[in-house]
């Protein structure tokens, strides 16, 4: 597969006494979309800022394209694009001026700047707003422009922190297609997000961070089969009792039962259809079923399961 685009090894970061990153390690292979998942404050942004040299790690090793970004930032950042979470851009500039300024930083010639800026503005749907001051842009427009500026240098690796935050549904779909096209062009994407459905649609690989620890990393299929293996049946019953929940949990084909009001999310250990058995069991327990839905696995469940188990896959 060749050298990883990004290699993070044993990364440690303290803020005062608080350990924000605790021996974080993962790799990004070329041509993949890597979803970096975690709750607020888990360490996602700190990881990104360490990779980009904005935060100085207290320990560990980072290699971008095999190069230490702290020692040779100029060589590294020629090949990296970055779009931060809730970006704030230079409000006194127009979109065109900002992209031109960015393109100059990468040493693009006047002619290639003009062509590239037009392409990018068209790509993110801001061509008609090119001469408007960024300070007058909406949040979604700023997000679009931040993604455009991350692509100015045609980077091999694009790091995006919550890239679809603030985008309307149409723009979200548009950018999802854009990200997939970037992969077709041989780029590698690192996407940090808490929008798990979005990551599930895009990512080929994921890493999950919790309280500064990486609790899981692997392919999307791996995480789904290991932590959300099987399927889920959502059941709405008239009266949920602790006895009922305990009885369900004791069933050999049930991995976990989550209770929310009178709704039960029953995680099954395999893909085998257990609807018939479950319905019979519930009737035997005297439960009145209001609704009963079988659904496919979602990253969200896998993520919650990973957090619950600390990354140890439950036995099937």
């Amino acid at each position: 597969m060749g050298e990883p685009v990004l290699e993070v090894d044993d990364l440690v970061k303290f803020y005062g006494d608080f350990k924000a990153l605790d021996h974080v390690a993962f790799k990004l292979e070329r041509g993949s979309i890597f979803g970096y998942l975690g709750q607020n404050g888990a360490g996602k942004t700190t990881t990104i800022r360490s990779i980009l040299g904005l935060a100085r790690p207290n320990g560990g090793r980072i290699r971008l394209f095999g190069i230490d970004p702290f020692k040779e930032p100029l060589r590294v950042f020629d090949h990296v694009g970055y779009s931060p979470e809730l970006p704030t851009l230079q409000g006194f500039m127009t979109a065109y001026q900002l992209l031109d300024f960015t393109a100059r930083q990468y040493g693009l010639t006047q002619q290639s700047r003009t062509t590239r800026i037009r392409e990018l503005l068209e790509l993110v749907g801001l061509l008609d707003h090119r001469d408007k001051k960024i300070g007058k842009y909406s949040k979604g427009m700023v997000q679009r422009l931040a993604i455009a500026q991350a692509l100015v240098n045609d980077p091999d690796l694009v790091i995006m922190d919550e890239p679809t935050l603030g985008l309307d549904p149409a723009a979200t779909v548009h950018f999802r297609d854009l990200f997939q096209n970037l992969i077709k062009d041989g780029k590698t994407l690192f996407i940090s997000s808490h929008l798990l459905d979005e990551v599930q649609r895009l990512a080929s690989h994921v890493a999950m961070i919790h309280r500064g620890h990486i609790v899981f990393q692997g392919s999307l299929n791996d995480v789904l089969s290991a932590f959300a293996g099987g399927s889920i049946i959502d059941i709405e019953v008239m009266n949920v009792s602790p006895t009922l929940v305990a009885a369900l949990r004791n069933l050999p084909y049930v991995r976990e039962v989550n209770v929310q009001g009178n709704r039960l999310a029953v995680h099954l250990t395999s893909d085998t259809d257990r609807r018939g058995e479950l319905t019979t069991f519930l009737f035997q327990q005297g439960a009145t079923i209001l609704s009963f839905t079988h659904r496919n696995l979602r990253l969200e469940e896998a993520y919650l399961q990973v957090l619950r188990t600390g990354g140890v896959a439950p036995a099937s």
Partner: peptide
Amino acid sequence: EQGTVDMLLTKPLT
């Protein structure tokens, strides 16, 4: 204050 420093320092610039 405005967060614009991130954009500047993640470019090929020491």
